[in-house]
Design a protein around this nucleic acid. Structure first.
Lengths: 207, 207
DNA sequence: CAAGTATAATGACCATAGTCAGTGACTTAA
DNA sequence: TTAAGTCACTGACTATGGTCATTATACTTG
């Protein structure tokens, strides 16, 4: 267990990190990632460049931190969305709805530029990927519940484990989102995801 | 139609471009894209940095050229593999075989490091991705043929167009390969791809 | 052949991400 | 209180992708 009491020095450090984080957030929202330099971030924050690299491994690491925090908040959103379904709803319908919801968030709320940077950071491994791809992520638990429901209701086949199906569903979303990132703007993420899930759900059906 | 006769100056220019291309190819294979600078390429090629930018718009443009040539060679290999199947073979079996073949090439011949570099380049660099992801790529034509055969033989449903199914199959391979790149080494590409295609093929079957 | 033109090639230069040895304010232990 | 030690912080510096005014030289034309 870490010591929760902070001394002045540690408090100052957290404050410095927050100044950098907030300045970057504002600048990125105004000018976009590509048009904001590390120099301009530290100037706005009123700290030195070296200080930036004390608190963040890289510019991308900061961007990923911003986006990851945002995405983590969204899992809560997905969860409340999921809880709004009646208990007798069909699993395949819930699945399609939540997938549609997720895709809407990716395209409309987060947006292409941020998604591209996250997916880039995931593959270059310049960040801790666990909050996004780790099987502990709340998103996996939610999908797990839905799939379990589908099997219990005899909608889905039982040839594969719940975990396997869950992983493949989320992997499919991620894969199509990657495709979106490399084909943008000539690719409609939502319709392609829905088509893909139509095939997948058909393949998962009992019989 | 361009003039096919080259004068000395044009011949020298082509030679210079080739020197840059070959030097880059060797260096990239040895050290990877990220660890080879433009300076080191032009030094090895024995030309100036400015000369590099006469022949290539950017470092990424050069990478793109290399990737284009590489992919073209791969597709030839896949094609000859495809032609080895008897005419009466089932489409789903051919599909599974070629998918297995592709995955073997990705994992064994190309390898994780190079694949990561390519997938990273696709999403990060502003390279011309067309030779790899463009629907004109030979790979799409090959898949198209197989899917068409499956529909003609009444194996597959006709709810979606051949093109749609083709695109979603290749997108699935690419998506799972992306997942492999971000989870390596805790992910068995071949078995996951085969599981995913089992679901997909089941979902594509007639009835 | 001489003068003019086109273009391949040059390398000094710029912008920006990232580094690191050094500084001094703060913490800790006597 | 004070000396020793820690660590957030600094900013000059490096590395590298890319630019551009200039130069060298092959080609063209009169």
């Amino acid at each position: 267990m870490k010591n929760l009491k902070l001394n002045n020095r540690q408090a100052k450090a957290i404050e410095t990190k927050a100044k950098i984080y907030d300045s970057a957030d504002q600048l990125f929202r105004t000018y976009g990632f590509d048009h904001v330099s590390v120099d301009s971030i530290v100037e706005k924050a009123g700290v030195s460049k070296g200080s930036f690299y004390v608190h963040f491994d890289s510019k991308n690491s900061l961007i990923s931190a911003l986006a990851t925090d945002f995405v983590a908040r969204l899992d809560l959103d997905y969860k409340s969305f999921l809880e709004s379904f009646p208990p007798n709803a069909m699993a395949s319908e819930i699945l399609l709805s939540i997938v549609g919801k997720i895709v809407d968030v990716l395209t409309l709320t987060i947006g292409y530029n941020s998604m591209k940077i996250i997916y880039e950071a995931l593959i270059t491994r310049t960040i801790n990927t666990d909050p996004i791809v780790g099987y502990d992520r709340e998103l996996y638990k939610m999908f797990n519940e839905i799939i379990k429901k589908g099997i219990d209701q005899q909608e889905f086949q039982t040839e594969m484990t719940i975990d396997t199906i869950t992983k493949h569903c989320i992997m499919a979303i991620r894969g199509i989102t990657y495709e979106w990132c490399i084909r943008y703007p000539d690719f409609d993420l939502k319709s392609e995801v829905l088509i893909h899930f139509k095939i997948l759900l058909n393949g998962l059906k009992k019989q």
